[in-house]
Structures are given as structure tokens and as C-alpha cells.
């Protein structure tokens, strides 16, 4: 099938502002949007710039806005995008070039929630025990691949770049609800900040955007309740 790719372009060394590039590609209905972007980059315009790596929805490199909605380019099939496929960089993060944005502010927020297990009681031999139910409690949020699709789909984040954002809250949730962890209260304090979890307005764009199908808003809601209980 023939599809028109409308791609938001910006070269920091040449352009003063972004512009739209249009390209025709011939693709299979089962091809990914990433395949179509590669067709443009490899055979039509080598200057098109994007990040990608694993190409099957695990590494989280190629989150972008596809037809007005955040998604991984390697997880959207061409048969689902129609005759025209509009591709833009993620919103709310500084634009570097074409579809590449600066991820550093995003990772800074991730680092702010102490995303590591805190527990010094290590058994002499073997593993710490954890019941399947306790493991299940935080299963959903272990799936996060830090692609930033959720955070950059959030109107609260667009309006306020200091908002810690859904991804960081999801990462905090993964530890707060892990019964092996001992720093839940500290993390809850961090998230109780004015730019913490209370900026969430339950818009649910993050749930729709998450390529790992994490129930992001539920995780945020659980953190809100935990703050009410613990602090």
C-alpha cells in the first residue's frame, strides 16, 4: 500500500523553526511505522534523524507522536495509520533534531525518585523470600521501559516542565509496593512535593500511550493514597 509520511523536521544547524516534510512510501500493511521511517531515511532522505534500536517494543528508543498520539514507532502497524501518517517528536522535551528530543530532563526525574531497592538485610545464604502475591503487587510497574511516552502525553507535564511525570511515579511505585524495600516513606516524601504526584489530574493519556500497557493512572492513584496513609 502507498502511504504519505508527513514528518516534522528540524535541523538545529540550518532551520530556525520546524517544518513538515512529505514522503511517499510503498509498504506492506504489516510493516511498522518504523519500517516506513527507515524507508524514508535509507532510500529517500538520509538526513531524517530518529532513535531506534530493538524494533519490537522493548528498548523504548522510538517513542514519538504518531497521528496525534504517543506510541513506539516499532509497535504501530501501517495498516492502522491510514493513507497519511503524521509523525512528530515527543512533546514537552527540548527538541534536538527531527524526531530526536533531549531525554536528559526525563531521566533526571527518574533518578530523583531513588529508583533502586533499599534493603541492607541480606540473608546469609540464598534469596530473600517473597510470596507470589507480594510479587504480583508491583508486577505492573516493573514493565516500564522508560520510553517517556506517558510523561510526554500528559497535559500537566506540557504546562509545567517541573512536574515529575507519570514515568517517574511508575518507577517509584515499583519500589514503594515491593515488600522487600525499606525506603517507601522517603520516596513518598519526594512525591508529596508540589511538583510531585498531586499534579496528576487523572487525564489517562498516559494509560493510552503506554506501549507496555501499564495502568499508569492506577499506579499514580495508589501512590496518592499511600501518601495520605503514610505521611
Amino acid at each position: 500500500m502507498r502511504v504519505k509520511m508527513r514528518i516534522r523536521r528540524f535541523n538545529p544547524e540550518k532551520d530556525s523553526k520546524p517544518w513538515w516534510g512529505e514522503y511517499e512510501v510503498e509498504v506492506e500493511p504489516t510493516d511498522r511505522v518504523l519500517d516506513a521511517l527507515h524507508q524514508v531515511k535509507w532510500y529517500q532522505d538520509g538526513t531524517l534523524t530518529l532513535r531506534r534500536s530493538c524494533a519490537h517494543g522493548i528498548c523504548g528508543s522510538d517513542a514519538m507522536v504518531i497521528n496525534g498520539r504517543n506510541a513506539l514507532a516499532c509497535k504501530v502497524l501501517m495498516r492502522d495509520v491510514g493513507k497519511v501518517c503524521v509523525v512528530e517528536p515527543l512533546r514537552g522535551l527540548p527538541l534536538i533534531k527531527d524526531l530526536v528530543v533531549d531525554m536528559e530532563p526525563f531521566f533526571a526525574k527518574y533518578r530523583a525518585v531513588m529508583p533502586w531497592l533499599v534493603n541492607d538485610e541480606i540473608p546469609d545464604h540464598g534469596e530473600r523470600l517473597q510470596s507470589p502475591e507480594a510479587r504480583e503487587r508491583y508486577d505492573d510497574t516493573t514493565k516500564c521501559i522508560l520510553c517517556a511516552a506517558c510523561t510526554t502525553s500528559c497535559p500537566s507535564f506540557w504546562a509545567n516542565e517541573h512536574y515529575i511525570g507519570p514515568a517517574a511515579i511508575v518507577q517509584a511505585h515499583r519500589f514503594i509496593f515491593d515488600d522487600r524495600d525499606r525506603a517507601a516513606v522517603e520516596r513518598l516524601r519526594i512525591l508529596n512535593d508540589r511538583d510531585g504526584v498531586w499534579r496528576c489530574r487523572t487525564v489517562f493519556n498516559c494509560v493510552q500511550a503506554c506501549p507496555r500497557e501499564i495502568d499508569v493512572t492506577k499506579a499514580i492513584g495508589e501512590v496518592k493514597l499511600a501518601i495520605l496513609e503514610a505521611l
Binding site: N67, S153, P155, V203
Partner: peptide, 21 residues
Amino acid sequence: VETLRYVISYRGTEGHWAWLL
């Protein structure tokens, strides 16, 4: 202006439009 453009052009779910309203 940029934020408004994002809000209007994003194809969110019901929650997005309810939030806007």
C-alpha cells in the same frame, strides 16, 4: 501557545477531552 497547541492537537482519550472541558 505551544501548550495550547499540544492540548488541542493531541488525540487523547475521553479523559483528555473531559479534562479540557
